[in-house]
Each structure stands twice: as C-alpha cells, then as structure tokens.
Write a protein that binds this DNA or RNA. Structure first.
Lengths: 337, 337
DNA sequence: CTGAAAGCGCTAACAG
DNA sequence: CTGTTAGCGCTTTCAG
C-alpha cells in the first residue's frame, strides 16, 4: 500500500517521531535530518493519512453542507460560494442533498456528525418549529450556521436574506407598475416561504389594498409547480394582473403557463420572482426578480463558520441579514421606465 | 464530549469488545446483553466515531466527486445522480470544484486520496494527454471512474456520451433544416470539445459540404463566451445561417447575441446546443439540443464505482457510452415539422 | 535536537 | 457467549 511514516523512519534509521516532526517542519529538528526525511518522503511518494491524523487531532478539515436541492441554481451558487471560501483554507466540503425532506435532512446531519465534520452549514427543510435537530448539534458543540431559511425558534448563527423585505419589495414594485390585482404564488411552509408571503401582505396593506383570499396559491420550489399554480390563478375571476412568485424557477413556470394561455407578460400579467438565478435574464421573458446575492450568502456563511471553528473560545451568536435588491427586467416593466 | 464505547462498557461492567459486538448485532452475543448495551447506548446518545472506525476498517464510505463547475447545471445534474445512488448505500459524497483548472484538479485529487475516499468520480479538466494524475490513482488502487470527458490516453472506467455522435447529430439536423452555411462554436480542448468538433466536420463531409475555416470559433463553457463567439460569427461574410454550439449555456449566449443584433432565431440563424440542461426549454427561444442524460451519467458512474469498490477481485475496465438523442425545439425548427 | 511511552476510538483474531 | 491482546497511522507529552 502507500508509504507510512514508519517506512521512512526504518529506511533512515531514525525514530518515527523524528519523521513526524520533520515532515511538519517542526522547529526542533535539525535542518539536515529534516531534509533527509523530506527527501525520502518524496522518493516513497509519502502521503499523510488524514484519517489517522484526524483521530488524534480531532480535526477533520471536513465541512458538511446540507441543502435541499443541488439542481436549484440558487443553492448551487451558495455551494460554490461556500466551497470557494473553504478550499484555500484546506477544508473540503461534503454536500448532502435533503431533497426538501426534513427526515432525510436529520438523518444526513447525524451522519455528518458521526463523520466528525468540523462544522456545518445547513439550508434547512424543517417546517415545524422543530429545532430539536439543531439543539443536538449544539450540544455536541459542532459549529453550525444556518443559511437562507431560519426556523422561527432557532437561536443560532444565521446568514440569509430578509424574506419579508423580499416580498415587500417585489409586491410594492408591482403596485408601482400599476397592477391592480396582485396575486402571490407562495412557497412551502419554510421560513422563506412564510416571510415572503408576509412581505406580500404587508406591501398590500401599506398601500391600502386588499386582495381576495384566493389570490394566494401554494406552489413548491420548481418551475413545474409554478406552472400548475399559475393555471389555478388564471381561472380566477377577475384574473390577477400581477403575480409575485416565491422564487425564480416558480416564476419561470408561471410565465410558461401565461404564454401558453395566449396572454402576454408583462402586458396582461406582470411577474416578479426572487433569487436572481443565473439564467433568469436568458428566459423567454427576462425575469424581474429580487436578488439575494446567493454567492455572498455562501461566502459569508463560510466566513462565519471558519471563525467559529478557529476561535479558541465560544463566539457570540451572529445573524447576518443580507439586504435584498430589486432587479427589474422585462417581465414586470409596464410603463417603459 | 460524546459518549464512547468505553463509557458504555464501564457503566455496564462488561468489556469494550462486548459493546462493540453488541452494537453491531454480531451474532455471538446474547440477546440479553445486546439489549442492555443498546439500551445504555441510547441513554448516552452514543454515536459511533467513523474516523476511528475508518482507521481500522480502511473504509471511509466517502466518495470524491470532482467536477469543473457546479453552477453548470449539467454537472449539478450529474452530481445529483451520483448522490442519489450513493446515499442509500451509506456513502457520502465530497464534491470538489476544479473550476476547469487542471492544476487545481490534480491538487484536489491528491487531497481526496489523502482523505482515503473509497472511490473517485471525475469529470476531468485535463487538456493535455496528461494521464499522469490518473495513473497515480490507479497505482494506489483507488477505484476511479471518469465521466463526460475521456482524455485520449486514458485507459480506465468511463461513462459519458459519444461526443462525435453529438456533433454529428446536431450538425446533420441543421443541414436537414436547410441551413447552407453552418458554423460551430467549439468548446475548449477537452475531449468533449474535440469530439463534438469532429462530429461537426464529419456531418459536413458526409453531406459533401465544406465550410470556410473561420466558421469554427472557440468559446468556453459559459453563456458569456457563447455571446462573444457569436459576435465574431456575425461579422463573417457571408454570415452563417446555422450554428452548432458546444453546449447549452454557450448556445443561450449565442442566441442573446443574435437577437441583440436584430436578427431572429431560427429564421435568420438556427441554433443547436448540447446537454439538454433543465432550463433550456424556458429560454427566450426554446433551445434545440442534444440530450446526454446527465442524471443517467451520474447514476451509471455511481453504479460502476460501487461495483469496483465492493468487488473482492479487480474488475475489468468498462467504458459506457450513452447514445445521444436529438431534442428539437424552436431554435432550429425552420420548416414547421 | 531526538526518541520512548501513551493513547485517539475502534475492530480483527483468537483464547477462554 | 465473553474477554484479552494487538494494532490501524498518527500526534502529544515529556524525558533524555
């Protein structure tokens, strides 16, 4: 198999310890022996065994990242941000896909803990107030940062957008564009879904508007569900003339349904999404959206986590809220601004 | 810290070994003690330490996946396929992003090896015939499957598309649609890029056509490069009336350039991409493409790798080529078929 | 500057 | 059925 320190030590007639120190350029080893050791190591193509190393140092340089969907480009971007930050520091990232399933998520977290990851970043699919899972992690003192979705009861590090503000911005923009009947395709019962819905309601009441209850329909995360939800909205009488969609994929699906019905975007119905995923300006109708700096979320979460991991003493909990930014494209531009 | 086997043993007044066996339901332990042990384990919230376990069993249940770009949805889909296959088997996947950089890729492979992953799946960014990296892996007897791109000199497991056939299909389709001047935005010097270019040339010569040399321009992987490349092609005289693009993102960028120039797709210029990424039918002009079953590539690669890992004896090298399939959408449909 | 002893948490192999 | 011994490959601690 591969060479071990023991082999180098034997070959050179020194002790295993000398080798260990020499390889790490510990400063109480003579320059001469250090060179001999490193030379021999190269000859044998010695590679340290991280498993053994981890067992004793209690550091794995492994980060667990749990996200609900790798194919959703928002999370792919987050993952990219996380990986970019960690790799230069010598960490590697285990990505786990919960597929929006809370039980699967819990199981995967358990596995990652048993693997002794140095830290965890999680975009949680937990819908209930169930923070149990995260309490267990805290009890084991594994640094944890939640991203994107903050369960209401969770008290811990968090990096994400201001969901309510996302919904408010998007909806206020539709109002400003002259939409009279504004609907919402809401997301699932996770924090982002709930917050964006709240923002939608707030913007309406701020403007003194009220919409029929059946103007809020529930979608999921994907464009297929946006398509279905939009078909329901198209059947309402009167028909909405503006829709704020939970996220960009859902918005893309909604646009598809509208065009298919022979209506136009934005003239008949204006659409705003959220997330500003990478391809959203390549769509049939370039999509107005609320940007949340996905890569920055990944970056900040990674930074925060590194601090927690490398801090000697416990660090106070932090919650970073990234301010959302409206990106107006064709799907909502009604008065040629 | 967390409980160890030792703690359970002490509490119950049995030996450490009894605990170890009981927890794994080894069959030479009495039902009674097994239950006592498992009971106590639950009370202490015992979780096995996989690092320690790995050190002795020489199995980490960790799979390394190296891809050139997580944000490219083709690779995200592949990753999804890989993860889906592995998770039920108890493996976890470390995803490493080489960002199309051969040196970074080599470095990351090294790290994954030191981590003692049980197997590797790599979509390699190596451009030269340089198979050195992979030889080292083989020498250490770590099961390896390359995907998507097969370096010419590589002799080992592979799962991917038939690149030449991809290029041939796409180009033949453009010919059939009546295009007279067919250009190609080729990819980088990796196998997929080279193969697809070859297919393009083959389709042309099969049809007895010849195109000016400057009808082949080089792009990269992203839509931005597709945009730039298309701008070059637009300046050719005569202008091409059909373009086969290296992949879907590049094609999306090319379409953007064409529309911006005030021309139409497919009437003025027909476009075909490759990869059939998930959002390609939501684009401005729904994109014709050559499907390569990205998820299936991930799946097959994972299956093949599992076999190699779990086989007692060395398994003969296999090369799985997935047959590409043309998907015709609006971007190339010229005669209302 | 170098090395011997001890141990990280667990399992394989064998003995009782 | 249960326990003992040995060791995975490395580092920490402390004595020479």
């Amino acid at each position: 198999m591969s060479a071990r320190m023991k082999d180098i030590a034997r070959d050179l007639g020194v002790s295993l310890m000398t080798v260990s120190k020499a390889l790490r350029s510990h400063n109480d080893i003579s320059e001469a022996t250090r060179r001999r050791v490193q030379q021999r190591a190269r000859e044998l193509d010695y590679q340290p065994n991280w498993v053994a190393q981890s067992l004793v140092t209690r550091r794995t340089y492994l980060i667990g990242l749990v996200i609900p969907d790798l194919m959703h480009s928002f999370f792919a971007e987050v993952a990219q941000g996380v990986a970019r930050k960690f790799e230069p520091l010598g960490y590697q990232v285990v990505i786990s896909n919960s597929e929006e399933n809370p039980a699967a998520e819990a199981r995967q977290l358990e596995l990652l803990l048993n693997r002794k990851v140095d830290g965890l970043i999680v975009a949680s699919a937990q819908t209930r107030k169930d923070v149990e899972v995260f309490d267990r992690i805290r009890r084991r003192r594994i640094p944890l940062v939640l991203i994107d979705r903050k369960p209401p009861a969770f008290q811990g590090n968090f990096v994400g957008g201001r969901d309510e503000e996302v919904g408010r911005l998007a909806t206020a923009h539709l109002i400003e564009q002259g939409c009279q009947r504004i609907a919402h395709i809401r997301g699932p019962a996770v924090a982002t879904g709930v917050g964006r819905l709240r923002g939608y309601s707030k913007a309406l009441s701020d403007a003194g508007l009220a919409m029929p209850g059946n103007y809020v329909v529930t979608g999921l995360h994907h464009d297929a569900s946006g398509y279905d939800a939009m078909r329901q909205l198209l059947a309402r009488d009167p028909r909405p003339d503006g829709v704020f969609c939970y996220n960009d994929p859902v918005a893309a699906g909604a646009i598809r349904a509208i065009l298919q019905a022979g209506l136009s975007v934005p003239q008949d119905i204006a659409i705003v999404g959220a997330g500003n995923v990478h391809y959203s300006d390549l769509l049939k109708v370039p999509l107005s959206t609320v940007d949340q700096s996905s890569t920055e979320i990944g970056n900040s979460a990674a930074e925060l986590l590194v601090e927690c991991i490398e801090a000697k003493t416990e660090i106070p909990v932090r919650s970073i809220q990234i301010t959302p930014r409206l990106v107006v494209r064709e799907s909502s531009r009604r008065n040629g601004q």
